[in-house]
Design a protein around this nucleic acid. Structure first.
Length: 159
DNA sequence: GCCAACGTTGGC
DNA sequence: GCCAACGTTGGC
């Protein structure tokens, strides 16, 4: 059973939803993921066309702020090969890349960002991975029901 | 800035 | 394989 919906975290000081919207083609490569579980979700789960909640972590407030779409499935993350990059990983070799990335395109902006404390109050989101104690995964699956609830609260408009 | 929770590393 | 030390995440 593969998830059809996802959530990604980004610190807006590093890369915000606005940064995605203003990127060429409203698209960016989701590089720099260095967690195996998150990597596996990208490599084994994410498929072209699936939708992604875009979450601002380390933000005030931390909140889901929009929706993106997967426009390219997993391919090698070149920042792992670049010794000058903060995400450099000498164990990742070009012949057998350890780390992958997908391409995400902005689809909708929430006119009402859905803050973390608001999410915690929503009946039906109790099991959402983001809300679990100690949850730190930067790429995580979301059920269709969870996605619909959050998207509804966000009152999205096309970007 | 604090610190709890978690993932990774490395000695043994 | 165990587990203590360490680094990172991310809410507050």
């Amino acid at each position: 059973m593969t998830s059809k919906f996802w959530l990604v975290k980004s610190e807006p000081a590093e890369f915000s939803f606005d940064d995605l919207v203003t990127s060429p083609g409203r698209t960016t490569c989701w590089d720099g993921v260095r967690n195996y579980q998150a990597r596996n979700f990208m490599r084994d789960g994410m498929r072209k066309g699936e939708l992604v909640l875009f979450y601002h972590s380390n933000a005030d407030p931390a909140a889901v702020v929009g929706v993106a779409r997967i426009v390219r499935e997993a391919y090698p993350d070149p920042t792992a090969f670049d010794a000058s990059d903060p995400h450099f990983d000498p164990r990742s070799r070009a012949e057998a890349p350890t780390w992958v990335m997908v391409d995400l395109q902005a689809v909708e902006r929430f006119t009402h960002a859905v803050a973390l404390d608001a999410l915690r109050k929503v009946k039906g989101l109790e099991k959402m991975a983001l809300l679990q104690r100690g949850s730190r995964l930067s790429v995580q699956p979301v059920t269709s029901g969870e996605f619909a609830l959050v998207r509804g609260l966000g009152q999205p408009e096309p970007v």
